[in-house]
């Protein structure tokens, strides 16, 4: 239990450093702004209580907001995603997953399942984030383009991250 907690804290710090020091400095174009720190919420165990997921999302967003100096923006997006995650898992995960503490990873659920899962939730996160960032529908299609291109790139990075760091299958 304590080991689990320490692993999660270490993963959290590592992902934030990765986001701030590496991914933010990619600066490809204004249309590709990947956010990979959401991998932390994506990789929480399937059977974690929904309210804990919400609180974790809240704190993840709060930490990101203080680094981006955008109060409420990342917080709103991560809470939105954390809530949808519960819905998605209720439909897409089977009973066994809820009984054992499986985390939704490529190693445990397979590449196709994970791609659909990651893409759906990343899109929901980016949809909230980018629209609230612009705060208007004046640039609707440009924002939509920014959302899809950024989400695709985020998912690409997330999958690479999964393959690099989450290779070990959990023994049950």
């Amino acid at each position: 239990m304590i080991i689990d907690l320490l692993t999660y804290i270490a993963r959290f710090v590592l992902l934030i450093l990765l986001q701030l020091l590496v991914v933010n400095n990619l600066e490809l174009t204004t249309y590709i702004n990947p956010f990979i720190y959401i991998i932390f919420i994506l990789s929480l165990p399937v059977n974690m209580k929904p309210w804990i997921v919400l609180i974790v999302s809240f704190f993840t967003g709060l930490v990101m907001d203080s680094f981006y100096s955008t109060p409420g923006l990342h917080m709103g997006a991560t809470i939105f995603m954390g809530y949808l995650r519960g819905f998605y898992l209720r439909i897409a995960a089977n009973k066994e997953d809820f009984e054992t503490s499986v985390s939704p990873s490529i190693a445990d659920k397979g590449i196709v399942w994970f791609l659909v899962y990651a893409l759906t939730l990343t899109l929901s996160h980016h949809l909230f984030l980018f629209f609230f960032e612009v705060y208007s529908f004046f640039e609707f299609f440009r924002t939509l383009l920014r959302i899809t291109s950024s989400a695709l790139f985020s998912v690409l990075l997330i999958v690479i991250g999964e393959l690099l760091f989450f290779r070990k299958t959990k023994t049950r």
């Binding site: 923006l73 917080m75 809470i79």
Partner: peptide, 11 residues
């Protein structure tokens, strides 16, 4: 509640 909180401080 959490979502309202974040949208309010954002606004």
């Amino acid at each position: 509640a959490l979502e309202m909180f974040s949208v309010i401080i954002l606004y």
